[in-house]
């Protein structure tokens, strides 16, 4: 692993992930190697079941590989304690999900603030920064709305605001356009592209939508767990 974490935010080295269920083994990823660099938007394209989401969860440190090594910010994932991984996810990673995964019982601003609180940012400054992020994505007027009242596109913008609000160095996006109309979907990708170029963060997107390709610095194809 290149220990220069000024360049790489995450790296997979010969990673294989096998799931066992009722004696049957499924190879989700097979000897995949990959580096995510700062200021780069990487797109993993592949059909359902190709291992895209597994790859993303490995990059997030949410599970460990069956073999091979996963490095997050220059350190082997197994060498992090659970609380260190939690802190890394809270303060240096941002997540965007296909189904947005907002907390419906909290207002929009509280959804964004909560993650910053996880990162240890004091409530007052977290709220101020959350409001700025929402303004940046053109949804400042929705701060006090509940997610249930928002359109799909608005929900995903909130999710993007939440992902970048804590000053993430790496954003992991799982099918971010999957629940959106084309125009809304592309607007979200443009937001992410701007963040990559303006803030120098690393964005890893998994999708089966190749219209995103034009925004990606690198496009990688996954099929049956193999990088092709």
């Amino acid at each position: 692993m290149n220990q220069d974490n000024n360049i790489f935010t995450a790296e997979l080295v010969e990673v294989t992930k096998i799931f066992s269920r009722s004696g049957n083994e499924t190879v989700a990823l097979n000897r995949v190697s990959f580096k995510a660099e700062r200021g780069e938007l990487v797109l993993f394209l592949g059909p359902s079941g190709s291992g895209k989401t597994t790859l993303l969860t490995l990059l997030a440190g949410l599970q460990e590989p069956s073999s091979g090594e996963v490095y997050i910010f220059g350190k082997r994932v197994q060498d992090y304690s659970p609380s260190s991984l939690q802190k890394i996810r809270a303060s240096q990673m941002g997540f965007i999900f296909q189904t947005f995964c907002l907390l419906d019982s909290l207002r929009v601003i509280d959804n964004v603030t909560l993650v910053m609180k996880f990162a240890g940012i004091p409530e007052k400054s977290a709220r101020r920064h959350a409001a700025e992020c929402l303004e940046r994505f053109g949804i400042g007027h929705l701060s006090n709305a509940f997610p249930g009242k928002l359109s799909q596109g608005e929900k995903q913008r909130v999710a993007v605001a939440r992902a970048i609000a804590n000053g993430s160095k790496m954003i992991l996006a799982d099918e971010p356009t999957g629940s959106l109309a084309t125009e809304q979907g592309m607007a979200i990708i443009e937001f992410l592209y701007d963040s990559v170029k303006n803030d120098g963060i690393s964005v890893v997107i998994t999708s089966h939508d190749d219209r995103i390709s034009k925004y990606a610095d690198r496009v990688l194809h996954l099929r049956d767990g193999i990088l092709i």
Partner: peptide, 18 residues
């Protein structure tokens, strides 16, 4: 009822005692 919320918060890095 809040199972998904808890999963989201765990994924987003909720501190262990939160």
């Amino acid at each position: 009822e809040q199972q998904k919320d808890y999963a989201i918060m765990k994924a987003l890095g909720a501190p262990l005692g939160f």
